[in-house]
């Protein structure tokens, strides 16, 4: 009976971590170590997030407790510990460092999508912590990070535009879909700010900067999405002129080239919206 049970236990050896996680974590660890070494040489204290051994155990336990208390996930087994952490939490730097590693290993084409994904996360984190006075500084940093991700996204789209205009327009559409939500979220938060900490000029300024970048991103994406459809309008116009000039008695059958007409109408409608606002 013993041998049978032992044989069964040994089947648990098959449990393995995800291979890509293993690899990316190694890179993350080694980069954190390098950063820590570099800072030591400069005489700067290592980041608290990395210097766990020097932190008092009770502080870590408190942070752990805070994470548990803040988590809104019903089943504990489903919690990705660091992934659900918020700015100011002990494991939060682990989350952002892992994002940086993801960014390093992603292709150029997908960098914008990743930047927007991170911008989404920052804005969500911001809404969760903005009303907590003890997280005031973290809220500031989070908005700054959000703005930085938008600036990254703009830069990446510009670079992609040089290589592949079609792909750039495709990505621009994805970004465009998010900018409205960002504006609404920040506007709503700004309105609430006056009641929570009226003196927070810095936060107000950061939110204004974020709104500016959102507008810039909107303009850029509209231009890109619009320019792709402009090309289609020109093509339709040329096709129509050619057909008019033709003396053929063949019945005019809707061609593939005429289909984009509907999207050009959409473009005009989109154009009108901002004016109405």
């Amino acid at each position: 009976m013993d041998k049978f049970v032992v044989k069964k236990i040994k089947e648990l050896k098959g449990i393995k971590p995800n291979a890509s996680w293993l690899e990316s974590q190694k890179s993350f660890l080694l980069s954190e170590i390098s950063r820590d070494e570099a800072k030591k040489q400069e005489g700067i204290l290592p980041l608290p997030a990395f210097n766990f051994a020097k932190l008092l155990r009770p502080a870590f336990l408190t942070a752990l407790f805070l994470i548990m208390a803040l988590s809104s996930v019903a089943t504990v087994g489903a919690i990705g510990f660091a992934q659900n952490s918020l700015p100011g939490d002990m494991l939060y730097p682990l989350k952002t460092a892992f994002e940086k590693t993801q960014f390093t290993f992603t292709s150029d084409e997908n960098k914008t999508r990743l930047s927007i994904k991170f911008a989404d996360k920052r804005i969500d984190e911001f809404t969760q912590i903005v009303n907590k006075p003890e997280k005031r500084e973290d809220a500031n940093k989070t908005v700054e990070e959000f703005t930085a991700q938008l600036v990254n996204a703009q830069k990446e789209i510009n670079e992609l535009k040089e290589k592949n205009a079609e792909k750039a327009a495709e990505v621009a559409k994805i970004v465009q879909a998010q900018t409205e939500r960002y504006k609404e979220t920040l506007t709503e938060t700004e309105a609430r700010l006056a009641y929570v900490f009226p003196e927070e000029k810095e936060l107000e300024q950061n939110i204004n900067n974020a709104m500016e970048e959102i507008s810039k991103t909107e303009e850029m994406t509209q231009a890109l999405v619009g320019s792709e459809e402009d090309v289609e309008i020109i093509n339709i116009t040329e096709t129509e002129e050619t057909e008019e000039a033709s003396e053929s008695e063949e019945a005019i059958v809707p061609s593939e080239e005429e289909k984009p007409q509907s999207s050009s109408i959409e473009f005009e409608e989109i154009q009108e919206e901002p004016k109405e606002k």
């Binding site: 766990f52 992934q83 494991l91």
Partner: peptide, 26 residues
């Protein structure tokens, strides 16, 4: 594998594994 068997969650096991090595280095 050890942590995974003890805590039952993949994501949590990943985080605690990373944490173990960071602490070890420190």
């Amino acid at each position: 594998r050890y942590i995974r068997l003890k805590v039952g969650s993949q994501a949590l096991a990943e985080d605690l594994t990373s944490e173990s090595f960071l602490r070890m280095w420190n």
